[in-house]
Design a protein around this nucleic acid. Structure first.
Lengths: 222, 222
DNA sequence: TAGATTGTTAATCGATTAACAATC
DNA sequence: TAGATTGTTAATCGATTAACAATC
């Protein structure tokens, strides 16, 4: 059963990151043929507190059953709905380099609803080809392309130097969602949503944690 | 001037993510020839509160000058030191697919101190080649390889099905830092640091924010 | 000097956790 | 039924923000 509710506040970033984790754990459970789970069971897998998991699930509006827990399938689809992954988004990619190519080759549409309809690159030799059946055009054709297709998300995977320029052009052409893989801080109007997928944020966490685990190892002897 | 201090508490994740953002903004400032900056100026660029930026910088131990602010070069190097990016890490990659290849091709060592010494893949046709001058070996050779080289970080870019298996082997061979690009929740002993660089976490934030900006647009008319 | 910016100390805000009655 | 798990309400914890004296 799904309770309808208004989400007036913005969902916090830690919660959204956890939702993505729940999502792939649920996929694993589904694959294993497990039909029901609970905050306690998920807690054992993820090492989050059960109450935190219950609080998170409440945001989706899904209501569980005392003693039983939640249906794996229902929970997965509630999370996908909450994150917008069940609707489907039309997306374009800028920059068909090695990272861009890797992104085009991933089957986003199956689980995340991200449907790449085209890619653009300013290097001539990379355009007018197909990558994973997605056409790659020269950047010059973007303006005319976007007039014909209703594009919701643009993914930026160009070198840092040209990222701001690409972003400006995206904003001019009415794109509201930008997924930025370049190592640049993009300046865009407030109504445009930019999410930075930079690896370096993640690397910063790893390398600092390594330092911290070393120093704490010196203080507390095991 | 750098103040020495003990970092007994673990640095929070939001702070570490912001450090990575400061880092590339500082690179941009340096490139523009700007020598000094301040929490106020960074605040204008990043739209963080000045006090938050000052508090963050304090963690690095760097001391600023009233009225002037901070030296761009000193701040950049203080951040790199804090994150462990100035020391340099030896790393290996597992999975030389399209994403793995993209990772090998990026010049990590210049800014982030990540030095890929080898990559491994279980597909025969992908091994015994060089990608960006980094040798790719068959996975079977990993155990003997690691005995000869002091590897600190292993990067997992294999399909979800084999990720846990790779992780187990890494732990057996004494690796303490894992950067996981596969869509799997890895189970490892507590002394091993795993950082998940999954794109989906970032995508979850983007797609949910797009939903939230739509609904709030209906409520608050601009 | 005057004023911008620092670092410190205290207040606020929001996220996480605890406690527990309700329930299948 | 008994007991596991739910959702609610309240408490705690930590991160962010505010206020302001110190300073170049």
């Amino acid at each position: 059963m799904v309770k309808t509710m208004k989400n007036s506040r913005k969902t916090s970033l830690p919660v959204l990151r956890r939702f993505s984790v729940y999502h792939h754990v649920l996929l694993e459970l589904k694959q294993q043929g497990i039909q029901t789970t609970s905050s306690t069971k998920l807690s054992e897998i993820l090492e989050y507190k059960p109450i935190q998991i219950r609080k998170d699930i409440q945001l989706t509006g899904l209501v569980g059953k005392p003693k039983k827990g939640f249906s794996v399938v229902e929970l997965e689809s509630a999370i996908k709905k909450f994150l917008g992954w069940s609707t489907g988004y039309k997306a374009v990619l800028f920059g068909a380099g090695s990272l861009g190519t890797a992104l085009l080759k991933y089957p986003w549409i199956e689980e995340y609803g991200l449907h790449f309809v085209a890619a653009f690159d300013k290097v001539q030799t990379r355009s007018n080809i197909l990558i994973n059946n997605i056409p790659v055009y020269h950047t010059d054709f973007f303006s005319t392309f976007i007039k014909k297709h209703k594009i919701e998300i643009a993914v930026i995977a160009v070198p840092a130097e040209s990222a701001q320029h690409v972003a400006d052009s995206l904003v001019e052409n009415g794109i509201h969602g930008i997924w930025n893989f370049s190592y640049t801080h993009l300046r865009v109007p407030a109504y445009v949503t930019v999410e930075n997928a930079q690896f370096t944020q993640s690397l910063a966490i790893l390398t600092r944690r390594l330092i911290e685990s070393q120093t704490s190892g010196l203080e507390i002897k095991e």
